[in-house]
Amino acid sequence: MKKAIVIFLLAVFGFFLAVTFLDPDFEAERNHNGVKNFYLDKTVSQLKTANTVTAIVVNFRGFDTLGEVTVLFLAATALGSILFKKRHHIGDRTVLMPASSIVSAGSKLIFPAIILLGAYVFIHGHLTPGGGFQGGTIIATGFLLMLIAYRDFSISHNVLSVIESFAGIGFVTFGLLGFMNGGTFLQNFMGTGVLNDLISGGVIPVIYILVGFKVAAELTGLIYTILHEKG
């Protein structure tokens, strides 16, 4: 009975959504060339950043990114707070049994390459797809591989939180530096260089690198916390 009601409600809801989005008018009445062309134009001419999405994420809508980083920070902190237990076993292992020697040898071998891949992704955030979030996530995934392949691989929570704090402070500080130099928060106050060079885009790659460090530290901490959770 409950299912029937739910399905009926969903049908109504879906009908409205379908009428909205599948209507040809929905495309026909669209009117948004201004923003897109402005962004594409200014990204090349002023910011000298090849990747427009990066330019939007870090510069035009940089405030969102600050909020987003904060959301991740909050999520990692909240995870620690929610799963908090009073007795804390120091000798807790993340995994119960050792992995096969092939898996552990392979992870050891591929781990630096994964970290390098992450670093590559966030250093080239303004040139190729990707950036701080993606790079940070890749690095965290690398740590995840090590954590599940080795029983005695441990990361210091303090180191993680120091990295995280410094990256976050760096982000806000760069924003405030723009505030002091150019007049607005997060303003691009550094020289922009030549399009498609590694050193271009002014403050954008710097902020994305900081975001990369921060996301990597946050996600690694998150995984580390949740892996230590034994039911």
């Binding site: 920070f73 939180s161 120091v162 995280e164 704090s165 976050g168």
Partner: peptide, 15 residues
């Protein structure tokens, strides 16, 4: 900006 900065700073101060 200030609360976010402080939120990132608090773990450092706490140490």
């Amino acid at each position: 900006a200030i609360p976010l900065l402080a939120a990132f700073l608090i773990p450092l101060f706490g140490m």
